[in-house]
């Protein structure tokens, strides 16, 4: 109960936070030029566990789903657009799962942000330790779609 009362949302990125501005947004050691957009606070926690990402986040609070009455206005999309257009952000990474609703949200947000900065989306493909011959068709098709040039 106490935790529930204390925890609110960060006013900048909308991640769960006890303070008005969350630890990640306040941290001086994090790259302020990169913003990773996710659907849910749980995704921030998952990405943080990797300790590979050093930029900042933006939590949308869900996915576009008209069946559930969720449109762009129900998500934290306009604060994101404001944030990106007003600050000098180098890159926005869209890290949203590849479901029908996720893809729609990615396309929608991507179009709004493209005029202001470089927009990328995370790749979907084979799991580590996964053998190509055992990968299913859906995953393989996605992996092919997201292929890139050998460096």
């Amino acid at each position: 109960m106490e935790a529930k009362q204390q925890v609110g949302l960060c006013s900048v990125c909308f991640h769960l936070s006890a303070d008005p501005v969350c630890e990640i947004c306040r941290s001086p050691s994090r790259d302020p030029d990169t913003v990773c957009v996710v659907a849910d606070s749980r995704d921030v926690i998952a990405l943080e566990k990797t300790r590979e990402y050093k930029g900042k986040y933006h939590v949308l609070g869900g996915l576009i789903s008209p069946m559930d009455g969720i449109g762009p206005d129900q998500l934290h999309i306009s604060p994101l657009v404001r944030r990106i257009s007003q600050q000098k952000i180098q890159e926005v990474i869209l890290a949203i799962s590849p479901s029908v609703e996720g893809d729609t949200t990615t396309l929608y947000v991507g179009q709004l942000l493209k005029p202001f900065t470089k927009v990328t989306r995370i790749a979907f493909g084979l799991p580590m330790g996964g053998d190509l011959e055992y990968a299913d068709e859906v995953t393989l098709a996605r992996a092919l779609e997201g292929r890139r040039e050998l460096e």
Binding site: S65, P66, M67, G69, G71, V100, E101, T104, E137, V138, A141
Partner: peptide
């Protein structure tokens, strides 16, 4: 078999789009 997945995706998009048009 992948067609089952494609068709299911299509039906989801269709339902979502219909919900939006209804709203």
């Amino acid at each position: 078999p992948i067609y089952a997945y494609i068709l299911q995706q299509y039906n989801t998009v269709l339902r979502q789009r219909n919900a939006l048009l209804r709203q």
